[in-house]
């Protein structure tokens, strides 16, 4: 009785093992060992910052498609990019480490409330109701839709506005996609100047609701020697690449020209500025 049960189970197990090993031979799918190696090189955060459905998706694409650059992984940065470049034999260019930047400073601007919002506590829902409860229609609503999608807890809500911890931010851009007001924007971590307002309103409409809102005077556009600042969809935009290429010789002309203090020093320059103030 015992013997027969042992024999039957061993037999079944053996048959299953043989069948599976035979099947694995017959049905073997040739997988590119390179894809596996690239996948191992990638951080494995599956954040989707590269635009693919996870690290494996990007690995497959970068190996098989010669037109896809090896430096799309923002989390891995230059180190991973050069490793992938080596594996796939592609030219590597430096990866600019990005971080999210909040284009709103509604607390400093004393933006008042138009009504008391007591609905679903999410930015998307609040933004859908009469353009949000803030006087400004382009402000950070502070319900933290971005915080929910952040992979690294780089974001937190403080005083009804989102605070970005740039050291923790990996620059995947998930938050910029989820923000219903496009308040969060990806900029290079070493960006020299950043814009702290995202309004599309002009002059009085801005003056009335916010003390630090962009009134679209265009002074920055005119002052910038690198022609890096432009008006896009009624919002000022800095072409950070141009700005960084031009370097510090302009002495942050745009920031000093801005009458509303919206263009602010960022990165190492901002730290130096703060230190000077402290001294």
């Amino acid at each position: 009785m015992v013997l027969s049960s042992i024999l039957a189970l061993t037999g079944l197990g053996f048959v299953a093992a043989v069948l599976l090993s035979v099947a694995s031979r017959i049905f073997a799918v040739k997988e590119d060992p390179l894809v596996e190696k690239v996948t191992e090189t990638l951080p494995g955060a599956n954040c989707g910052g590269c635009g693919y459905a996870g690290c494996e998706g990007y690995a497959g694409a970068v190996v098989h498609d010669p037109s896809i650059p090896p430096n799309l992984c923002v989390v891995g940065g230059t180190k991973v990019a050069s490793a992938i470049g080596k594996l796939t034999g592609k030219m590597t260019t430096e990866v600019e480490p990005l971080c999210a930047y909040r284009r709103c400073d509604k607390n400093a601007g004393h933006v008042a409330q138009r009504f008391d919002y007591k609905g679903i506590p999410s930015c998307a829902a609040a933004a859908a109701l009469h353009h949000g409860s803030d006087q400004c229609g382009f402000s950070c609503l502070g319900f933290g839709d971005c915080v929910k999608v952040c992979l690294t807890s780089a974001l937190r809500i403080e005083n009804y506005i989102v605070e970005v911890n740039e050291a923790m931010c990996i620059g995947c851009g998930k938050c910029t996609k989820v923000c219903p007001r496009n308040v969060l924007q990806l900029i290079p971590k070493r960006a020299r100047v950043a814009i702290t307002c995202s309004t599309q309103d002009k002059l009085k409409a801005v003056m009335d609701v916010c003390k630090v809102g962009c009134i679209h005077c265009g002074k920055c556009v005119k002052t910038c020697p690198a022609k890096a600042i432009s008006m896009e969809n009624d919002r000022i935009q800095i072409d950070q690449k141009l700005c960084l290429e031009y370097g510090d010789s302009c002495n942050h002309a745009c920031a000093s020209a801005c009458p509303r203090g919206i263009l602010r020093l960022h990165g190492p320059a901002a730290c130096a500025g703060r230190q000077n103030e402290a001294v």
Partner: peptide, 23 residues
């Protein structure tokens, strides 16, 4: 031995199906 044998069969079956589908 029903339970034991069935687990064995299901596990190997799923493995097999997975390989088959992949190919």
């Amino acid at each position: 031995l029903q339970t034991l044998v069935f687990i064995l069969i299901i596990a190997s079956l799923v493995q097999f199906v997975e390989m088959f589908l992949k190919k």
